[in-house]
Simulated scan of single mutants.
Amino acid sequence: EEQREVVPGLAAELADEVEKLDLGVHTGFSTMTRDDESGLLDQNERVTERIDELRSGRFDYLIALDDRRVCRDEYLRVIQYAAGQGNTEIVYAGEVNEDDLTFDLKRRIERDTKEEEIEKSRRAIERRKQQGYDHGRPRFGMTYDANGHYQVPGEEFDTVTEIFQLDNAE
């Protein structure tokens, strides 16, 4: 919430026109793995387009609450380099420790932690597959049973049924 309040105010002070890129919480990390289709930050099309725009000099400023809101691993260096190429100034609303050792230590710990979480998730999915359980986000109209093993009709299942009935009626 703080960044959604503070950053737009700073942006309005610095620039006449402001463009917002809010990626939400699901893309905060990048492991800079190019062959993984999991939607990581460095593979997000909106981010890669902005990197190209930074390189081309389209923006005067890149504004964030702190460097961790831009990127939590070494991909920050890619963003910083692109900003430098396009003569874009990176401005932070909050405190940023730019000491290289502190940066490197924090990012290494965060990266290791995230990679452990990803690996645990992959193992959990594999276990579910081996046990014959459903996995992943339930399809529209479905939910998981009380044990969390199988997808069963949920609150919006009637909507799904109606859609199929209307489709077949034509």
Rank of each mutant, 00 (worst) to 15 (best):
R50S: 10
V25A: 09
V47C: 09
E37N: 09
T31P: 00
V78C: 08
F59R: 01
R77E: 12
R68Y: 07
D35W: 05
D16Q: 07
K20Q: 11
Y81R: 15
R58K: 14
N44V: 11
G39I: 05
N87G: 07
Y61T: 08
R34M: 13
T27K: 15
V70E: 03
H26N: 10
R46N: 09
N44W: 02
E19D: 01
E53V: 03
D60V: 02
D67W: 01
K20T: 07
L21P: 00
D52A: 14
G86M: 12
T48R: 14
D60K: 15
I79S: 01
G39P: 11
N87I: 00
F59N: 06
T27N: 06
L62N: 01
C71Y: 13
E53K: 13
G39K: 05
T33V: 13
L40F: 09
F59H: 15
L40G: 07
F29D: 02
Y75R: 13
D16C: 00
R55D: 09
R34Y: 13
T33Q: 09
R77V: 14
G39Q: 08
D16A: 12
I79A: 00
L76A: 14
L62F: 06
F59Q: 08
Y81D: 11
V91P: 04
R34A: 14
R58I: 03
A15Q: 01
S30I: 09
S56D: 14
L41Q: 04
E19K: 09
L41F: 02
C71V: 08
V78G: 04
D42E: 10
S30V: 09
T27C: 11
A64C: 10
T31W: 02
D66M: 09
R50K: 10
E45W: 05
E19N: 05
A82W: 14
T31A: 04
L40A: 12
C71K: 06
Y75V: 10
V25K: 07
D22V: 11
E53D: 11
